[in-house]
Design a binder for these strands. Structure first.
Lengths: 111, 111
DNA sequence: TGATTATATAAGTGGAAACGAATATATTTC
DNA sequence: GAAATATATTCGTTTCCACTTATATAATCA
């Protein structure tokens, strides 16, 4: 019997599901790209070098999980990050793994 | 040819490896527990309800990845978080998934 | 309307990860 | 030194993921 603050099972389940969702090289790359601006599928294909079908499946998975949202524009489909939590999470990762690429909160000193 | 700030492949690879490492319910639970204080294996078994062999395998995996470190104390083995980045990451998750459990940076107003 | 472009979905396959069962190793106690 | 406790490791099985190939749908254009 410990008096530890146990995290509820369902929270753990959601969190690990969220992590699994972004713990994939291609999906993470896509999220990093969409952090900059919304993009359509063929832009993402070009930027990542992924196969069309494969990328489409990953996009679809992230959309179903509420991470991404999509909007049809003509024959293209624009994808963007739907859940700001994931934008934050990816930013946190960038700060850990490539601090020099994160322009972070501007210190209000530089131009 | 886009002028997007592409994240280098090896950074993506490290990041997604790190995410996969914690994107598992049991491993994430362990990390949350160890966020409080170092614990020995049978404490973790009791707190998580996991099978001994299974938990041991996960601990071993996280130790090999540099996430955890262990110190033998008598016949027990104490585990703790070795890499502060992961502590931060897990804290970030807590803020997203259970904000009410995070005592965060004290606002210096409450007792 | 037929061809082309953009994207999605389905089906099959290969490989990795997780788990349980059994066993091994180290430490303590008697 | 034998039993008990604490933890690690090995092995075999199953389950889950990702990827490719092929096909479907929708929009545009000729």
């Amino acid at each position: 019997m410990s008096d530890l603050p146990i995290i509820p099972e369902d929270k753990i389940k959601s969190a690990s599901q969220g992590l699994r969702a972004i713990a994939h090289e291609l999906r993470l790359s896509v999220l990093c790209l969409l952090l900059e601006r919304p993009m359509c599928v063929h832009e993402l294909i070009e930027a990542t070098g992924a196969a069309q079908s494969n990328l489409s499946q990953h996009l679809s998975k992230m959309r179903m999980l509420g991470i991404l949202e999509s909007e049809k524009r003509g024959q293209e489909v624009m994808y963007s990050i739907a859940n700001p939590d994931f934008a934050e999470l990816v930013n946190a990762l960038k700060q850990i793994y490539c601090p020099e690429m994160v322009c972070a909160a501007p210190t209000a000193k530089e131009g």
